[in-house]
Design a protein around this nucleic acid. Sequence first.
DNA 1: GATGAATGAGGCTTCATTCAT
DNA 2: TATGAATGAAGCCTCATTCAT
Lengths: 217, 217, 217, 217
Amino acid sequence: MPRAVRERQMMDAAVQTFGQRGYRAASMDEIAELAGVSKPLVYLYLHSKEDLFSACIRREAQALVAAVRAGVDPELPADGQLWSGLRAFFTHTAENPDGWAVLHRQARSHGEPFISEVVVMRDEIVAFVTALIGAAAREAHRDPALADRDVAGLAQALVGAAESLAGWANDTSDVSAKEAAATLMNFAWAGLENLMHARPWQPPADVSRGSADDGTS
Amino acid sequence: MPRAVRERQMMDAAVQTFGQRGYRAASMDEIAELAGVSKPLVYLYLHSKEDLFSACIRREAQALVAAVRAGVDPELPADGQLWSGLRAFFTHTAENPDGWAVLHRQARSHGEPFISEVVVMRDEIVAFVTALIGAAAREAHRDPALADRDVAGLAQALVGAAESLAGWANDTSDVSAKEAAATLMNFAWAGLENLMHARPWQPPADVSRGSADDGTS
Amino acid sequence: MPRAVRERQMMDAAVQTFGQRGYRAASMDEIAELAGVSKPLVYLYLHSKEDLFSACIRREAQALVAAVRAGVDPELPADGQLWSGLRAFFTHTAENPDGWAVLHRQARSHGEPFISEVVVMRDEIVAFVTALIGAAAREAHRDPALADRDVAGLAQALVGAAESLAGWANDTSDVSAKEAAATLMNFAWAGLENLMHARPWQPPADVSRGSADDGTS
Amino acid sequence: MPRAVRERQMMDAAVQTFGQRGYRAASMDEIAELAGVSKPLVYLYLHSKEDLFSACIRREAQALVAAVRAGVDPELPADGQLWSGLRAFFTHTAENPDGWAVLHRQARSHGEPFISEVVVMRDEIVAFVTALIGAAAREAHRDPALADRDVAGLAQALVGAAESLAGWANDTSDVSAKEAAATLMNFAWAGLENLMHARPWQPPADVSRGSADDGTS
DNA sequence: GATGAATGAGGCTTCATTCAT
DNA sequence: TATGAATGAAGCCTCATTCAT
């Protein structure tokens, strides 16, 4: 059997096992058995558990980014791009729950060097969303321009909400990718739009709770 | 040394270790050493690694919920309640990064029975937010009323965004709790308000994309 | 509470625990709890687990020997003495199943120094039975006298059968001490009597199975 | 080295260690070292201490039963069968003292599920002896027939005596298997024969002793 | 007389990883 | 290319035992 095929089988088994059991609880024995090969072969091809997990993260991250990119038409206006990107995102995570678990839950829970791997991907998506928000702001001729920091925070919030909704949709029966995407658009878009037009929500003058307890840890 | 004090030391050490290393990677040896006691004492008081982790989850969950409750004045209007709740939430997670890591990352990554423990807390917060959105809708005399399912999705998205932002704020220097809360309010409130007044965002008529790919549960 | 009473409580708890769990599986914690005292007190009075187990063996052994002695009237003829001794033996083991388990099962399973403790008691009983058989032989004017080694073997067999029957009676509902004793008398006495009168069972001339496979380990 | 060979080495080491130290006191470390392998290999092949002990019991039980069966010629009359069976029994226990210790002392001292394993074997031997006694009774045209319960008690006593004598022979130098068998035949056969011919030993009319103390089941 | 607090030592079990073929 | 055989290291947990009060 050609190497590439064997390797794919192993990675599939690994993603499934890591996604369901977690990095530490998954055993190389189980992965090898699920892949239908002997353990030394796994080591021959993928070198170590750590390498294998990293490879899983990279593969799933690239697949997710590719799916989102493929779902977006850059000719559309900003809201159309966001809408189709979200739909692609939720569709992909729903179709690859183990891969999504690897990226969203497991990779983030086991320190370096795995976090860095997902951060690369997440940053790519955040950058994409950031650009989208920037484009929307320009479309709206917002003036003065949104501060970069505000845009970053908004992108984080949007991506974070999307990630959280993906987990929720995966764990809740009868929530389709489309519904999840619509929920998020409903939730977010109008707020973004208000920002675009320089009508941010204003915190009340905070007289009663003046204790300076909002430090950064 | 009295038992209660020792127990607190152990739980503190456990939260720190679990939060930084993860459930499986944390070793009872390390926790005991960090607590400054011998391993058997940890077992005498906390019975097992599983029990210890559950106890950490419960303690941190209760502390977080209590902090949020204490930060909210039920006499305020809905947006005021949301604002102060978010501030309390981000303040608490910033001050207890390990506890937040236990709740947000580790407890969710290691299956039952831990997930159930956090789900209880999360549901409590989601219910609180759900009630808030409902109250806001009534304040706005929205008619027809928001569907329950929509409210649930919105609450999920809001809580998910908050959770994600808390991680982001913890990992990014110089982001204060207040800024995180303001970002989220900016992002979310206007969108919610639009919903209150029955002006939801409308997905475009979806002609170009087939309908097959968006319903994987 | 006076020391003697406390000590008896502890020994009672220990006999029960050792008899039911075995020497190694019994824990000092469980014994102390069953006795209703704290662990250090057990150590203060009984010094160590080994000492405690030895003390249990000695106490139960003495109680058993005393019960058998008390049940035998030395004025009776040999078969009467055997009969009443067996009845006393089976009655006592039935009334003290945990003590009997300590002596018969646990003490023999855990090497020195415990085996020596029971051997002392067992030898005492074997000696008693040996004397009985010798007396019976003299009563029967057996000539030539039974060889000492034969008598020893017979006494072993008798005591062994009694021990085995005691376990069987304890584990089988509805077998009374009297029945067990009668069974053993039926089984043994007539054989012994034949021996007394120099009519031993004769092994057949062993021509076919001459292989010298009857070594002594 | 092929698996079957290694497995036998491990079982041999385990029987020796369990027989001499007892189930709880034997350590997997010691067994592995005695077998000349590493501990993980023991677990790979035999799964757990409990499984290993059960496997030892089964192997030794089957070996003993097989040895007794092989030593008995079913064409012989009842006493000849008993005689040759006893010789085979004592020969085997003398040649496998550790195996016999496992069956007779250790398996019985450590509760379920081990007791059940030996009980199966013991019941097989008891059934064999019971059939023998029944056959002898028919050979002797005993009338009325022996009650089933009496036969059961007698078989228990005979097997118990044999078990006890096996231990005695193993612990006493210079007692050959043949001698042990002869002792037991002397002790038992004539008594059985008397029973066959309906001449049981009769307990004396029990006037002196109250009836209260002999029925604790 | 009595105990709450504490631990050194050791046992069972698992796992990532390698070697020889 | 592929694997049966094997292990060093480490983790969870328990227990007999002691100290300070």
